[in-house]
C-alpha cells in the first residue's frame, strides 16, 4: 500500500509542463558490430489531452519509443520525463506503479487473457490497484459500456470478433482512468471498417475525457484522426505535422 501511496505522491503535483517529454533520447540495442540505434537523439513533447499519431517505415523506432513512453523500457541515454519526473531514476517497482496508475496499453494483437471473460480481463488492472470487488465490477462494467460491449461481459476472447476484442482491450486500458493511452498499431489486425470504429472510439475518449492518446499506425487515414503526426525514420523524428482538419485538443 505504501508503495502505491508514494507512486501517487510522486506524480501528485501537476507540473505545468508537458505530460511527457523526451530529451535527446537514444536507445541502443546490442553491442559493437551488432549495435542497433533504435532511437537516435529524439526530442519530443506531448501535452495532456493531445492525440498524436506516430508513423514511419518498419524498423524506424516507433515501437521502441512507445515502450519507453510506456515505462516498459528505459532510454540508453537522454531523459524521459513523465509529468516532469525523470523516469530513468525509478526502480522497477516504481515503474510498475506508474504503469498501474497512469498508463494504458493497447496492442496490435489485443493481448487479452485467454479463457478469461471480458469482465475479468477488465478487472485485472483494478485488482492490482487493490480496488475492492463491488467497485471493481462497477468500474469494469462502466468501461465495457463505454466501448459498447456491456452485453458481452461474460464472453471470453475466443467468443469475440477481432474488433470486439480490441474494444475490450481499449476498455481494459482506460478502466483505470490513466493519463496516457499508448496504442501500438491497434488497427493493424483489423479490416478497414473495424479500424475506423476503433479510431472513432479513441477520438471520442480523447474528446470527451481529455485522454491523451499516442498511436502508432502505417495508414494515413488512421493517422488523420490525430491532431498531430510524428514521422520517424532511422530512430529520429524527421517531420512533425499539425492536422488542421482535426485540431488537437491540447489546451
Amino acid at each position: 500500500m505504501s508503495k502505491q501511496g508514494s507512486a501517487s505522491a510522486l506524480m501528485a503535483e501537476q507540473s505545468p509542463g508537458p505530460l511527457v517529454a523526451f530529451e535527446n533520447v537514444s536507445k541502443i540495442y546490442g553491442k559493437g558490430d551488432a549495435e542497433v540505434r533504435a532511437l537516435n537523439g529524439v526530442n519530443l513533447q506531448i501535452n495532456a489531452g493531445e492525440f498524436v499519431a506516430v508513423m514511419g517505415p518498419s524498423g524506424s523506432g516507433k515501437s521502441t519509443a512507445m515502450n519507453i513512453l510506456g515505462c516498459l523500457d528505459k532510454p540508453t541515454s537522454g531523459r524521459y520525463l513523465f509529468k516532469g519526473v525523470d523516469v530513468g531514476g525509478l526502480a522497477s517497482d516504481q515503474l510498475a506503479m506508474l504503469r498501474r496508475h497512469f498508463l494504458g496499453f493497447v496492442f496490435q494483437g489485443f493481448n487479452l487473457l485467454a479463457r478469461t471473460t471480458a469482465l475479468e480481463n477488465l478487472e485485472l488492472p483494478l485488482i492490482y490497484q487493490r480496488i475492492e470487488k463491488a467497485r471493481r465490477r462497477a468500474m469494469a462494467l462502466e468501461a465495457l459500456e463505454t466501448v459498447g460491449l456491456a452485453d458481452r461481459a461474460d464472453h471470453t476472447p475466443a467468443e469475440l470478433s477481432g474488433g470486439q476484442q480490441q474494444r475490450v482491450a481499449i476498455a481494459r486500458a482506460i478502466v483505470t482512468k490513466p493519463s496516457l493511452l499508448l496504442a501500438d498499431e491497434p488497427t493493424g489486425n483489423l479490416d478497414s471498417a473495424r479500424s475506423h470504429e476503433i479510431m472513432q472510439l479513441l477520438t471520442r475518449l480523447n474528446r470527451e475525457r481529455g485522454l491523451t492518446v499516442v498511436l502508432v499506425t502505417h495508414e494515413d487515414d488512421i493517422a488523420a484522426y490525430a491532431g498531430r503526426r510524428l514521422d520517424f525514420r532511422d530512430g529520429r523524428i524527421v517531420r512533425e505535422t499539425r492536422n488542421t482538419g482535426k485540431p488537437s485538443h491540447a489546451q
Binding site: G70, H101, N111, A114, P125, R172
Partner: peptide, 13 residues
C-alpha cells in the same frame, strides 16, 4: 504472454 500483459498493466515482479 499473460505474464507480459500482467507486467504491462502494472503488476510488480
Amino acid at each position: 504472454r499473460e505474464i507480459g500483459i500482467r507486467l504491462a498493466i502494472g503488476a510488480t515482479e
